[in-house]
Write a protein that binds this DNA or RNA. Structure first.
Lengths: 228, 228
DNA sequence: GCGGCGACTTGAACACGTTCAGATTCGGTG
DNA sequence: CACCGAATCTGAACGTGTTCAAGTCGCCGC
């Protein structure tokens, strides 16, 4: 029964994932991973570049679980505010499970040159999943807004999500209650803001913000082109 | 002439600082620091808890230099927008010097339980310096705004500054041109936003935002009280 | 002078992530 | 079967941050 369909590679990543969830990232040693996976220490380095690479799997897991929860919660709901809230809540609920290792993960993810950066190529699958979640959320909603803004919205909301994560990690209140409180208020606030911003007097502000976003985006693309 | 007034402690921190600036944080070994400071490896651990503690000094250096530049640039200027911009530019100019080690520093600072967290007690001196910079900036300006908002503004601007840092580290464009472009637009935008927000229809939004800020602040205080 | 105590210093030793030169396995070819 | 080359695997060894038991020094009370 055991070790039937599981290749060495899978065994290692399984061992790493379970150990990291049990003890945390720092206290999980490569030797312990190798032992649980029943391979030598050297073999783990044959399949993976290093310890960091062994946490890549977490991203996709979190993205998938968030999307599943969100789409379930959005079923039959058309209110933009409520759909957005469902996405945020889904993300918070999913993240909660990984809170014990969040510090270590963020510490790795914050380094721009790391493959674990949320902007990296390796993170693209997870990132795209989140973006499609927000696209679905918007498309199924009653949101009425400027088409340029609508187009930029998934990126913007993904950025908001990243900032939420940042605050959530810093939030040491029990159960991250502060962050949850703020996040619960966020969807209605953003929803109202988007309605408000349709009015003519806000044109310059919207233009300003969208232009800023465009600068960031092209900056990122040209960098990718140069290939740092 | 040498080693006249310099205690062992100072020699170590000097050696560490210079080596980190030369080679970066990761490539600076504790053994190299001990060697340059002309002490044994063990002694460095007698005076400092570990490698991380040796970068504490950078915070205050950056804060002091930023304040100096900002107050020079604000001299005689009363326009809020221009004074704010002076602070932002001062911070960017100062940070530039430390860009090579920014990744490592941020990676350490992002961990909430670390003494290097910008919210930690150990970081208070640097944080207070920045806050006083923004207080001076506001007090010497022609800003007219709600008194509650005025009171919250230093904290808000410090948070903005943290977010700028975050983006600046992620910004891989040459010379961090993207961040500089965004930051250059930020002061006028925020200034206009603050004017706009004085109008009656925006009351609920301001209240919302200030209440959110209050939640975060009290959350932080109660945490400090419990003493995690 | 002497004993002792606290501040300071030391380098060996530990556990860790990582590397590497070689050993082993295995599918295919003559 | 014999042999080869590539894929896979191995554990010793390296450099690192950190710990610690032991050593050294200076000063105070007697």
């Amino acid at each position: 029964m055991p070790t039937l369909d599981s290749s060495t590679r899978d065994r290692i990543v399984t061992a790493a994932t379970s150990l990291i969830m049990e003890r945390g990232y720092d206290k999980t040693t490569m030797r312990a991973i190798a032992e649980r996976a029943e391979v030598s220490l050297g073999s783990t380095y044959y399949y993976f570049g290093g310890k960091e690479e062994l946490v890549q799997g977490f991203y996709l897991r979190i993205a998938r679980e968030t999307c599943a929860r969100a789409s379930a919660a959005m079923d039959g709901v058309t209110s933009f505010s409520k759909r957005l809230d469902a996405c945020f809540e889904a993300f918070m609920d999913t993240s909660e499970e990984y809170r014990p290792i969040a510090d270590s993960l963020l510490s790795l993810a914050i380094v721009p040159s790391s493959p674990l950066s949320p902007f990296s190529d390796q993170s693209r699958p997870a990132r795209d999943l989140f973006l499609s979640m927000y696209v679905d959320m918007i498309d199924g909603s009653d949101l009425k807004t400027d088409s340029r803004l609508r187009q930029a919205l998934p990126d913007l909301l993904w950025s908001v999500q990243m900032l939420i994560t940042l605050g959530w990690v810093q939030d040491l209140s029990p159960g991250q209650r502060v962050t949850r409180t703020i996040v619960a208020r966020l969807a209605p606030s953003l929803s109202r803001l988007l309605s408000l911003v349709r009015l003519a007097p806000f044109r310059p502000f919207v233009d300003d913000a969208l232009e800023g976003l465009a600068i960031v985006k092209t900056g990122r693309e040209t960098r990718a082109h140069v290939g740092v």
